[in-house]
């Protein structure tokens, strides 16, 4: 059985959906953050697959930039979580309701 672009796109979509479900259902900020990362990585997988099957390397360069931005984003986000934990002693989202309407 030949592996085509559609297979990679399907795997990427499944990974994205798993990340989405994690973001919606989980209560721990850190795990929500990990699920966000997973959604980003799913998009990376589809980008690399498109780049490979179209014979253009620009997609791979784009993924390179996405990985860089994701690393910077993780650093800042985890710093925010640590600052929040110092203030509230919790990382569970149901305890953080200051902005709740």
């Amino acid at each position: 059985m030949e592996i085509t672009l559609n297979h990679y796109l399907a795997v990427g979509a499944i990974l994205f959906v798993i990340g989405l479900m994690g973001v919606i259902t989980r209560r721990n900020l850190i795990i929500i953050y990990m699920s966000l990362e997973m959604m980003l990585q799913a998009a990376n997988l589809t980008l690399v697959a498109f780049s490979r099957f179209n014979g253009s390397l620009s997609g791979q360069v784009f993924v390179f930039f996405v990985i860089t931005v994701a690393a910077a984003e993780v650093a800042v986000g985890l710093a925010l979580i640590v600052a929040l934990y110092r203030l509230r002693q919790t990382t569970q989202v149901q305890d953080l309701t200051t902005l709740k309407f």
């Binding site: 990679y8 850190i30 953050y33 990990m34 990362e37 990585q41 990376n44 690399v48 697959a49 780049s51 490979r52 791979q60 993924v63 390179f64 990985i67 860089t68 994701a70 690393a71 993780v74 650093a75 985890l78 979580i81 640590v82």
Partner: peptide, 25 residues
């Protein structure tokens, strides 16, 4: 997918640095 460079970067940056940061926190 023949993206060897990105595979290396993915392991080094995401599995290496980012996940260590997560575990550390």
């Amino acid at each position: 997918l023949n993206a060897f460079f990105l595979a290396a970067v993915q392991i080094l940056v995401t599995a290496g640095a980012v996940m260590v940061l997560f575990l550390f926190i």
